[in-house]
C-alpha cells in the first residue's frame, strides 16, 4: 500500500484516496477551434512515462480535496505532494503546503 501525503492531512493510507490521472492537462480554451485529432489528444492521450509522473489524487475519506503528487511510476516512490493552484498551473506550490500554508485560495483579496 502507498503512503500518500495529503498536503493538508499529512501521510495517510492509499485506501483513503482515489486516483485522478495525469496532472497538468489544461482544458483547451477554445474547443471549437480544435481538430478532432487535437480534441482526442486532449481527451484520451496521456504521457504514460516510465519514471517521474505528476498525477492527481483526491483525499476521498479525508478532507475531500484534489491535490497533485509527483510519483515515480517505476519505483512507486512519491517525491512530493503539492496544492493545486486556482490558475490552472499545478506546479505553483511546493510541498511546504503540508504545513497548511496553501489552501487553493489566493490570499490577496480575500474580502
Amino acid at each position: 500500500m502507498l503512503l500518500i501525503e495529503c498536503p493538508w492531512c499529512g501521510p495517510r493510507a492509499e485506501t483513503e484516496f482515489s486516483y485522478g490521472g495525469e496532472a497538468g492537462i489544461a482544458r483547451p480554451a477554445d474547443p471549437d477551434a480544435l481538430s478532432d485529432a487535437e480534441w482526442a489528444d486532449y481527451l484520451f492521450y496521456r504521457s504514460n512515462p516510465k519514471g517521474a509522473h505528476r498525477e492527481l489524487w483526491n483525499h476521498d475519506h479525508g478532507c475531500r480535496r484534489w491535490f497533485g503528487v509527483e510519483r515515480d511510476t517505476a519505483t512507486y516512490r512519491i517525491e512530493r505532494s503539492y496544492v493545486l493552484s486556482h490558475t490552472g498551473s499545478d506546479a505553483a506550490t511546493g510541498s511546504d503546503a503540508a504545513t497548511n500554508a496553501g489552501t487553493g485560495y489566493s490570499s490577496g483579496n480575500g474580502d
Binding site: 489552501t103 485560495y105 489566493s106 490570499s107 480575500g110 474580502d111
Partner: peptide, 8 residues
Amino acid sequence: LNPHSRKA
C-alpha cells in the same frame, strides 16, 4: 468560507 477572508 474563504479562510483568507478575515471579515468573513
